[in-house]
């Protein structure tokens, strides 16, 4: 296939989309930062955050980037079985993260922090909720790729499909590093 830059159209599209998504998360994070410490009532972040707990789930999500790279290496080497193992592992790590987030949200609501309780609740749930949605879409995508491989529709020449999904997955992980730092770690 001939293109002016030699890059595949779809890979280029994913890079451009991620650039646009940066602005999306930038706006959400900006909103959160603008409203930091401006809640008129509790619960406040210091009262509900459990940093060791969230650190573990952040670690789980970061490890999924490693397994994503292993999946890409597997398809490039033509090893379909190993590809599926690593894709499934990545999806499971992603689901663990989502499970952790679900548990955390539940705990917050139990502590009296709902979506419309105060500015902290609103900006926190909207920001982390949209990040969680991104992770969920990524998990569905990984499961789709696994199924495609299982039914022989993802051969080594189509490693590009795994690579593009990987770009998206790594991006979502990187966004979490920023969110975790600014939302949880910043005193």
């Amino acid at each position: 296939m001939h293109t002016t830059t030699g890059l595949d159209h779809r890979k280029l599209l994913m890079w451009l989309f991620l650039g646009s998504d940066c602005m999306f998360f930038g706006s959400l994070i900006g909103t959160y930062m603008a409203y930091r410490g401006r809640s008129l009532s509790g619960p406040l972040p210091s009262e509900v955050f459990d940093i060791p707990y969230t650190s573990v789930s952040a670690f789980v999500l970061l490890m999924s980037s490693l397994t994503m790279v292993l999946a890409l290496a597997a398809i490039q080497a033509g090893d379909q079985r190993r590809l599926r193992i690593w894709l499934i592992t990545t999806a499971l790590l992603g689901m663990s993260f989502l499970g952790g987030q679900f548990y955390e949200f539940n705990y917050f609501v139990h502590e009296g922090l709902g979506l419309s309780t105060n500015l902290f609740g609103s900006s926190f749930f909207v920001l982390t909720g949209f990040h969680g949605t991104h992770v969920a879409i990524g998990v569905l995508w990984l499961l789709y790729l696994t199924a495609a491989s299982r039914f022989g529709r993802l051969n080594a020449e189509q490693a590009l499909y795994v690579e593009i999904a990987g770009l998206y997955w790594h991006f979502v992980d990187i966004v979490w590093i920023v969110i975790f730092t600014l939302v949880y770690l910043l005193p």
Partner: peptide, 18 residues
């Protein structure tokens, strides 16, 4: 849309929104 449909207070000054 969250403010209007769910009741958040992003733009509602009395609740601290701006």
């Amino acid at each position: 849309t969250f403010d209007r449909l769910v009741g958040t207070t992003f733009y509602y000054a009395p609740a601290g929104g701006d």
